[in-house]
Amino acid sequence: MRLAAFNVENLFDRAKAMNLDTWSEGREVLEQFAELNRLLGQIIYSDADKRRMAELVVKLGMEKSDTGPFVILRRNRGKLLKRPTDGGVIVIANGRADWVGSLELREEPVDEEAMRNTARVMSDLEADVLGVVEAESRPVLSAFNSLLLPAVGGTPYRQVMVIDGNDDRGIDVGIMTRENFSIGMMRSHVDDRTAGGDVIFSRDCPEYYIATPKGSTLVVLVNHFKSKGFGSAQSSNARRRAQAVRVKEICEALLADGIDYVAVIGDLNDTPDSEPLKPLIESSLKDAFRHPQFDDGGFPGTFGLGNEGNKIDYLLLSPKLFGKVTRGGVFRKGAWPGSRPKRWETYPQVTSPEHAASDHAAIWVDLDI
């Protein structure tokens, strides 16, 4: 059987702020959005909170309207703010109970050719079990499966599953399986918390129990760890380390229960030598990239141009599952290869970075189970 993982970077829509010309511009918008969302969710608004919320509303382009270029403020009932005729914004609510509504990121469609290239990768991988990172929702992933895969000559997967996670931007993790690889029990860790009460996983760390035609049970944990892009490096590193520690605990419990075949797959947003990933990398799990039958095509990274510092996608396998690997590799045909010179062969339709299926390459292993 073939097990694979692919960060699709959203299938149909993504936040407009994430499509800005520069990464720093998008990061600033998303950080302002996150801060305003946090302040709006407080039970009581202090005078300082109100002033900061007003500043952020203006910075996000909503001084004159609830619809900004990248963010929408939905006010259903109650009174949150007023906009004086001479400009500016004044927050008049004293707390979250004074109004009903939400703050949302505006979305726009992903490039159509990029969507088709994403579908080509998902089809040409020929995976029996595919972990998907950055899917908007189960309905979206299911629609992509049933509509886009046949459009590029592919066969839809038999089962599609996404459990809603903690990211309010619609960045979830899911799984797709072929005929005879049925998903049985599922367990979510969306509400796992630290000793201090903080939610551990940025999205989720779902456990999917999959029956293989040979009668084996494979438990797949699909993950997308905290990125380096938003918040301080210290807080991001601490969050990823907490996630690595918790995943290690979950895997150790599974192995102690007699489950031999366990795989942690997905985008862990850090390199194998990083301190945050150390608890997981130095656990009993083994990185498929280190298997003698794994071929990275001469490029050790999985993100961007495949440089060593961009090895952030993983197939971490339990010892007995690692022993069942027959071969593996990195599928780069949908990824932008650079231009001077091109680093790898791509689909003819990948004529610019905007048409790439994703900034991530897909990764896979064949397993004799």
Rank of each mutant, 00 (worst) to 15 (best):
R2Q: 15
A4P: 00
N10H: 11
L11W: 04
D13W: 08
M18K: 13
N19P: 14
N19S: 15
N19T: 15
D21A: 13
W23E: 15
E25A: 12
E28H: 10
A34C: 14
N37H: 15
S46G: 13
M53L: 13
A54P: 14
A54G: 12
K59H: 12
K59G: 06
G68A: 08
G68K: 07
F70Y: 13
F70H: 11
L80E: 10
L81Q: 03
R83N: 12
T85E: 14
T85L: 06
I90M: 04
A93L: 07
G95T: 06
V100A: 14
V100C: 11
L103N: 04
R106P: 02
A114R: 07
M115F: 02
R120G: 02
V121R: 01
V129G: 03
G131H: 06
V133M: 00
E136T: 07
S137E: 08
R138H: 12
P139W: 10
L141S: 02
F144C: 06
N145Q: 09
G153R: 02
P156Y: 00
V160G: 01
V162T: 02
I175F: 00
T177I: 01
R178W: 02
S182R: 09
G184L: 03
R187Q: 10
H189E: 10
D191H: 14
D191R: 15
R193Y: 02
G197E: 08
V199G: 05
V199N: 05
C205N: 11
C205T: 12
Y209L: 05
T212M: 02
K214E: 15
T217G: 13
L221H: 13
L221Q: 15
N223L: 02
N223D: 06
F225K: 03
K226D: 14
S232Q: 04
R241P: 12
R241C: 15
Q243P: 11
Q243R: 13
E249L: 11
E249I: 12
E249S: 14
L254R: 15
L254W: 11
A256Y: 05
A256I: 08
D257A: 12
D257G: 14
I259Q: 10
D270C: 08
D270N: 09
S274K: 12
P276A: 09
D296S: 06
F299A: 09
T302K: 01
F303S: 06
L305C: 10
S318A: 09
K320F: 00
L321A: 00
L321C: 03
K324F: 01
K324T: 04
V325H: 03
T326R: 12
T326N: 09
R327M: 15
F331P: 00
F331R: 02
R332D: 06
K333D: 09
W336D: 03
W336P: 11
G338K: 10
P341T: 01
K342P: 04
Q349V: 04
S352T: 06
E354H: 12
D359A: 00
